[in-house]
């Protein structure tokens, strides 16, 4: 099967052609190699997981995708074009949204304002129009508010829309952050440990949201997660990293039976 052809999964979703491809990425911090020669692709409409033990370089990989780190070697291909080195905000303008492992919300703003900030790509009225709140600015504000309300509905955070984010509990903050990323209508959504620090119910909720998102909006998702049960259930394909190297890539079943992966997680006997 060529990577450019669409196929239909067992549960009836269509996985499209490759939307992002990492080619031989190497990232160094001084003498430390965080990522060594890693290649993988993300296909349209799929849920792609990146897993690996602590310090494997998963978050660094995500930071390379979102433009925080510029790799010393290798290329990032996005929508069939090689991507030049970019600032994070330029990457966001291209339609790549993300959430953070440690929540990165704007604490002083309300939930609604936080999610509205996600619509930055869709709102570009001039300063003058905004200053007098007429014309494009006003229309844009209302149109985007409608779109944002849909996402607020979808993630079931209607009741807290006017609450300052600083006052919310952890689980809700995670959800608001997801809402903000989703509001951008991204082509690729990067989730950095969306379930870290959650209890079972919250994890179930979050898994449901991720699946629904993928299903209803057709959002392509790349996620890092430590909960193996969640990863194996949710994802279509999994990349496994260890010490900055790729040690496995494939469907959850393939990865589960990969000896290198089992060794990385369970350890190997040394002579």
């Amino acid at each position: 099967m060529s990577t450019q052809e669409s196929y239909v999964t067992e549960d009836g979703r269509t996985i499209g052609p490759t939307v992002m491809e990492m080619k031989n990425i190497t990232l160094r911090f001084g003498g430390v190699k965080a990522i060594t020669d890693i290649s993988f692709d993300i296909r349209e409409g799929e849920i792609r997981a990146i897993i690996g033990p602590n310090g494997a370089g998963k978050s660094s990989m995500l930071n390379v995708i979102s433009g925080f780190y510029v790799p010393q070697e290798g290329e990032v291909w996005y929508k069939g074009k090689k991507r030049p080195p970019m600032k994070p905000y330029q990457v966001a303008e291209q339609g790549i949204a993300r959430t953070f492992q440690n929540i990165a919300l704007f604490e002083g703003m309300t939930v609604l304002d936080n999610v509205m900030t996600g619509r930055i790509r869709q709102m570009n009225a001039g300063l003058l129009s905004q200053a007098i709140w007429k014309g494009k600015a006003e229309k844009e504000e209302i149109a985007n508010r409608e779109a944002v309300e849909k996402i607020i509905d979808f993630l079931e955070i209607q009741a807290i829309r006017k609450t300052p984010v600083g006052r919310l509990p952890y689980g809700l903050k995670k959800r608001v952050e997801l809402a903000r990323a989703l509001a951008a209508e991204p082509s690729i959504l990067l989730l950095d440990e969306p379930m870290a620090g959650m209890n079972v119910e919250e994890k179930e909720d979050m898994s449901r949201f991720i699946l629904d998102m993928n299903d209803e909006f057709g959002t392509t998702i790349a996620l890092i997660e430590h909960d193996m049960g969640v990863v194996m259930d949710l994802s279509d394909r999994v990349v496994v990293m260890d010490y900055g190297k790729k040690i496995g890539d494939g469907t959850p079943d393939e990865v589960r039976s990969n000896q290198a992966v089992i060794d990385a997680y369970l350890g190997v006997a040394h002579d």
Binding site: S66, F68, K87, P88, Y89, A92, E93, A97, R98, F100, A104, L105, F106, E107, T117, G118, I120, R121, R180, A184
Partner: peptide, 9 residues
């Protein structure tokens, strides 16, 4: 949070 702001665009 200026870093998060930049990530958002």
């Amino acid at each position: 949070m200026d870093i998060a702001a930049e990530i958002i665009g």
